[in-house]
Design a binder for these strands. Structure first.
Lengths: 181, 181
DNA sequence: CTGCACATGTAAGAAGTTACATGATTGA
DNA sequence: TCAATCATGTAACTTCTTACATGTGCAG
């Protein structure tokens, strides 16, 4: 329900093509809202039809032409209205937690393979935390000279960093628990 | 893809009816995998057809009859196999983060209403943390005498507690940022 | 000449949400 | 008698995922 709004925010921060949006969803926005290019093109088409965004053909040399999207007045109004509405309770889906509880019903070999998997998962998130910290150093080197948009982006990034740190600590706790079984 | 597996874990911990499962998904399991009763009944039916679970009619007095489900050998095998597979990268959907970044594109009144909303959201999660901590005191009063299943359940609960604590800290950070704008 | 980045889509199917539907018992 | 809890579903709809489809230009 909020993919539209995530796209509107991203286009307000910087207009761009469907392809560029998909890239952003892989990197920055995707930290808190994932979407594939198929979803993005579909929603973009609907939003264009509804007058929320407008497209401009951009010819490029050495590259295929693209359609660059910008937020129209109506789209901005929709976003502002949505910002005033209460946050919907989010649907939690944490597969690893299901597997950890499931570990009670497998044998020693099964638990050993889960430990390996948790270690792999931990390494992945350690790398992700590293990327967040690098991004923070790159994009927010001087926190005293940021505009409103940048300060808010930084606050959201700090949330990602706090989440990854909490996750790594918890995964260590889980590994201890699994090994002590 | 993993609702089946969440149900299998829950039924292995304790057999029960679709209704009872729905209640558990509202409370304990729902901390890391949400599902409505409609989904549960649909998946339960499919799993019964595939021989993953078996149902037993239980007559009750003073209450409607129910069908109590237990995990069959085949269901257990499916679960054990799934436990060995790598964890799928999860789809993150954090509406509040989108709204925070969106706050750059609204006016003072819009930002004020977002602050109120973040405060409400924070109070909700503070209450949730309280429930987790109460549940911990109730279900795990003596951590030295727990079996494997309980120790794993406790580890997952500690994850929920760590998440909520991290979230509250971050929300305070966000409120400071929004107020300073 | 092969693979990758750029660029935009369609189609089928799986999964999830929302609304509707029924009916018994218990406690206020 | 009214609401809540227990108990089980169907139907319609929306959304998401996965697979397929096409074409250019550049770098190795």
């Amino acid at each position: 329900m909020a993919l539209e709004h995530a796209i509107l925010v991203s286009l307000l921060e910087q207009p761009g093509s469907g392809y560029e949006l998909a890239r952003r969803f892989e990197r920055s926005i995707g930290r808190f809202w994932t979407a594939t290019h198929q979803q993005i093109y579909r929603v973009l088409k609907r939003m264009e039809g509804d007058g929320w965004v407008t497209a401009e053909e951009v010819g490029q040399d050495g590259r295929p032409d693209k359609r660059s999207f910008s937020v129209a007045g109506q789209g901005r109004a929709v976003l502002v209205e949505w910002l005033r509405a209460p946050v919907q309770p989010e649907a939690v889906r944490h597969e690893l937690a299901v597997k950890i509880r499931g570990a009670a019903f497998t044998d020693l070999a099964g638990r050993a393979s889960l430990i390996t998997e948790v270690e792999r998962y931990r390494a992945e998130h350690e790398a992700l935390l590293g990327r967040y910290l690098n991004g923070e150093k790159r994009d927010f080197p001087d926190t005293s000279s940021l505009d409103a948009g940048q300060r808010l982006q930084h606050a959201v990034l700090r949330g990602g960093i706090a989440y990854e740190r909490m996750l790594l600590d918890w995964l260590d706790d889980v590994l201890d628990t699994l090994r002590a079984l």
